[in-house]
C-alpha cells in the first residue's frame, strides 16, 4: 500500500475546471517533482492534498486513511503533511525559533522548552541556528524559506508538499534552499512543484508533467529528460531547461 494515494481528483472554481481527474501515488521517503506551465493547477493539487481546498470529487489517502472523508479530523492529518509555501508565510510576529516551535507547542502540545530544543535542532539542520532569535522581517528570502522548511520538518511529517519554494527568491539565494531540500531526499517524502530542472533531474525519483488539469506524462527523470514519450513533454522540458539553466542549481 502506498503511503500517499491521490485518486481521481477533480476541482473546479465556479465553472472553471482546474483539476480534471488527477491520480498518482507516493511511497515513503520518495521524492516527486511536479512540473507544468503556470495556471495548470499544480498549486490547487497540493492544496487539495492537505484539504486547504476541498476537491469536488476524488479521494486522498494517507497511511491507509481516507483524509477526504468529512469525518476525519483534518487538523490531525495536517500535522502529518508539511507545507512549504512559495511566499514563505512565516508567522510575522514570531522569531525564527518560535515559528518552528509553535506547531509543536500548540498543535502537538509539547512543552515549551522541549519544543524549542527540537525547533533549534531543525534550525541547525537548515543552517540557521544563528538566526533563531530574528523575526521574519529581519531575514533574507532564502533564510525565510529555510525557516519555512524547518517549521514543516519539526512536525515530523510523513510528506512535505513544496509549492514552488524557490520562485520568489533572488537567483543567488536559490542554491541554499535547494541544498537543504536535497539533504532531505530519502529521509522524508517530498512532493515538489518547481521549475528547477537541476533539482528535478538530480534529486527526484519521479517527475510528473501536468498540463491543463491532468497529468500528461510521468516517469523517472532520466527517461523524461532523454526520451519522453510525448512530444509535448519534450517540448516543455526543453523550453523550461533553457529558461532555468538546469546545470547550475541543485546539482
Amino acid at each position: 500500500m502506498a503511503m500517499l494515494e491521490v485518486k481521481d481528483i477533480y476541482k473546479a472554481y465556479g465553472n472553471v475546471e482546474v483539476l480534471k481527474g488527477v491520480s498518482f501515488t507516493m511511497e515513503k521517503e520518495e521524492t516527486k517533482v511536479i512540473i507544468g506551465p503556470s495556471g495548470t493547477g499544480k498549486s490547487t493539487l497540493l492544496r487539495c492534498i492537505n484539504q486547504l481546498s476541498l476537491p469536488n470529487k476524488g479521494q486522498v489517502w494517507l497511511d491507509g486513511e481516507e483524509i477526504t472523508n468529512p469525518k476525519t479530523n483534518i487538523n490531525k492529518i495536517r500535522e502529518k503533511i508539511g507545507f512549504v509555501f512559495q511566499d514563505f508565510n512565516l508567522f510575522n510576529h514570531l522569531t525564527a525559533l518560535r515559528n518552528v516551535s509553535i506547531g509543536l507547542e500548540k498543535v502537538k502540545r509539547i512543552e515549551k522548552e522541549a519544543a524549542q530544543t527540537r525547533a533549534m535542532q531543525e534550525l541547525t539542520r537548515v543552517g540557521l541556528e544563528a538566526q533563531a532569535s530574528q523575526y521574519p522581517a529581519q531575514l533574507s528570502g532564502g533564510q525565510k524559506q529555510r525557516v519555512g522548511i524547518a517549521r514543516a520538518l519539526a512536525m515530523d511529517p510523513d510528506v512535505i508538499l513544496f509549492d514552488e519554494p524557490t520562485s520568489a527568491l533572488d537567483p543567488e539565494l536559490i542554491g541554499d534552499v535547494l541544498d537543504v531540500m536535497k539533504s532531505l531526499a530519502g529521509k522524508v517524502a517530498m512532493l515538489v512543484v518547481t521549475h528547477e530542472m537541476g533539482f528535478a533531474r538530480n534529486v527526484a525519483d519521479e517527475i510528473i508533467f501536468m498540463e491543463g488539469g491532468v497529468i500528461v506524462e510521468q516517469g523517472p527523470p532520466k527517461e523524461m529528460f532523454t526520451n519522453a514519450k510525448l512530444a509535448r513533454t519534450r517540448e516543455f522540458l526543453g523550453r523550461i531547461g533553457a529558461l532555468y539553466g538546469e546545470e547550475e542549481t541543485g546539482g
Binding site: 492537505n50 486547504l52 487538523n75 490531525k76 495536517r78 508567522f91 510575522n92 506547531g103 498543535v107 512536525m155
Partner: peptide
C-alpha cells in the same frame, strides 16, 4: 497566507 500556514500546521480555526 498567515491563516493558511497556521491551518497547514494542523491548527484549527480558533487556534
Amino acid at each position: 497566507g498567515q491563516m493558511t500556514a497556521a491551518r497547514s500546521l494542523g491548527m484549527n480555526k480558533l487556534q
